[in-house]
Simulated scan of single mutants.
Amino acid sequence: MHEARASTVSVTAALHDVAGLGGFFALRVGGRDDGWHPVARSYAAGFTDLAEAVARRHRTPEPRVDVSLAHLGHAARLWSPALACVVLHGIVPDLEGLQRADDGPALRVPRPAGWYADRLDGDPARAVYQQVTRHLSALADGLRVKVAPRLLDGNSASALAGAAHALLALRPAVRRPLTDLTTALLDTGHLAGTGVLTGPDLAFRRRSCCLYYRAPDGSKCADCGLAQGVPCRAPR
């Protein structure tokens, strides 16, 4: 992949542009080092602080609900900028060295790097998949609470589809490449079989549930596998 390496300037410009889309697309670039730590440290700690923040916010009675929602939010923060960078700028961002804010879920890359998607030897979808899922695998390995693996896979797919749906609404001109990439990703690795796209707006129906409905004020999400249409296959 060395020959496909994108320039630092190009990667920085791409990340700054997609951050302007707002929400989960924001992946900070460079800046001061204080206030940040390697996200691997948070993985090893099981994302305990973020799970506890979920418990306080939603008054959830079950630790696995807290963990699932923290995992889902992190997946969205990984998939959103990665997907947008590829579709809008043809760049697969390198998420090695990713850092997390000491006081919250925000992410940054201290030294931006990446690859030009059209210069990669293999499928760009596979490259994006590897960049994101290696982080989610590390997070899953560090969890202190038992959560069904396919539930976590469903969270990842839901976050991906949610990012695609949001990007399509913001940049409708990229419908074709966005749909192609999203479809390819949902057929890759652990994402395969997690759910189905249900319409041209890239709406998604997952085959599992993130467990948000088990929070006191929670409900079934729009893509929940417990809703009629696709049988839920993850333990509840």
Rank of each mutant, 00 (worst) to 15 (best):
L83R: 02
C85S: 15
C85N: 09
C85K: 12
V87S: 05
H89C: 03
G90P: 11
I91T: 01
V92D: 08
D94T: 00
D94Y: 02
L95V: 05
E96W: 00
E96M: 01
G97V: 03
L98C: 11
R100N: 01
R100A: 14
R100W: 10
D102A: 14
A106T: 04
A106R: 13
L107V: 07
R108P: 06
V109G: 02
P110Q: 13
P110W: 00
R111A: 13
P112Y: 02
A113I: 07
A113K: 04
G114Q: 07
Y116W: 15
Y116R: 15
A117C: 11
D118Q: 14
D118S: 14
D118T: 11
R119N: 07
R119M: 07
L120A: 09
D121Q: 10
G122S: 15
D123I: 05
D123N: 12
D123L: 07
P124D: 10
P124I: 07
P124F: 04
P124L: 09
P124Q: 08
A125I: 02
A125N: 07
R126M: 06
V128C: 12
V128Y: 01
Q130P: 00
Q130I: 03
Q131M: 09
T133W: 06
T133R: 14
R134L: 12
R134A: 13
R134Y: 08
L136H: 08
A138L: 06
A140Y: 04
D141S: 14
D141T: 11
D141N: 11
D141V: 02
D141P: 00
G142K: 01
G142H: 01
L143K: 13
